Amino acid sequence: MRIYLTEDYDAMSRRAANLISAEVIRNPSCVLGLATGSTPVGTYKQLAAWNQRGDFSFKEVRSVNLDEYKGLAPTHDQSYRYFMQTNLFDHIDIDVNNTNVPNGLAADPVAECARYDELVRSLGYADLQLLGLGRNGHIGFNEPADIFVKETHVVDLTQSTIDANARFFASADDVPRQALTMGIGCIMAARRVLLIASGADKADAVYNAFCGPIDPHCPASILQLHSDVVLVGDKAALSKLVAAGVPVCE
């Protein structure tokens, strides 16, 4: 595992974008696992700027997103398909037909989860999987639970996740209570995992994920078992790792 300590959110975003762009340059037809939420926005903005400048191309890249809210149409301004279009896909030269997000409107969500698992398998899993980190340690929408769920599945969102996402909706009552999320098995099958974290409110989650026991009540702790994990975080998010003497790179 490699840990990169950056000064602030902008520096974290640039470092993460560097790692993703290097993967695309090395393997132009790579499979990128992508995440949503506020943390990767800066990374996507940087990738779009470099792509528009002609530094590299996404034309052959295929992507698989981690999750989608159950019940939201792709055109809903809080759906994760909409997020990906407006924050990345509409600004780069990727073929939209090569981008994949679970269907939150599927008539049979269980069948949609099975379809998505098969899709990810058929692509050979992600060459690089980008992850954010919830304050409760969730990755994707894999919430704290008694077991690690391997397959893509429908999950009931915890109140802490609903509260954290309420800022994107008119009110907390409008936040969907369920989501379709890639399971731990698909995440762990990625050849490399890139976890990004920013802000003091993520310091406990980062510490618990990498210094605590491997425990499904902190889903990100499973990453301790992955052979190639890169953590990029700003000083605030990594403060407890640094205080514990965990080696970091700058």
Rank of each mutant, 00 (worst) to 15 (best):
G185W: 15
S221A: 10
A243H: 08
P40N: 04
D215T: 10
Y4T: 14
C249S: 12
A35K: 03
S221P: 15
Y116M: 02
T181R: 07
G33Y: 02
E7Y: 03
H76W: 01
Y125L: 02
D173V: 04
L223M: 12
A237N: 02
D127A: 01
D156I: 00
I3P: 06
G183E: 11
R177I: 03
A170R: 09
G37V: 11
D10M: 08
I187H: 02
Q129D: 04
A22G: 07
A200H: 09
A16K: 06
W50R: 09
D127N: 10
Y82A: 09
I214H: 04
A197Y: 00
G134A: 06
F58L: 11
L105K: 05
I222H: 07
G37P: 15
Y69E: 08
C186R: 09
V206T: 13
G37S: 13
T36D: 15
L32K: 10
D234R: 04
A126I: 02
P40L: 02
A106K: 01
R115P: 14
T152P: 13
P219Y: 12
C113P: 11
N65I: 12
G124P: 05
S227K: 15
M84F: 02
R15F: 01
F141D: 09
I162Q: 08
A17I: 04
Q85I: 04
D67V: 00
I3Q: 03
L241A: 07
L128Y: 08
V110A: 15
F168L: 03
R15M: 08
F169Q: 11
L157S: 09
A48V: 05
P102C: 00
D77G: 01
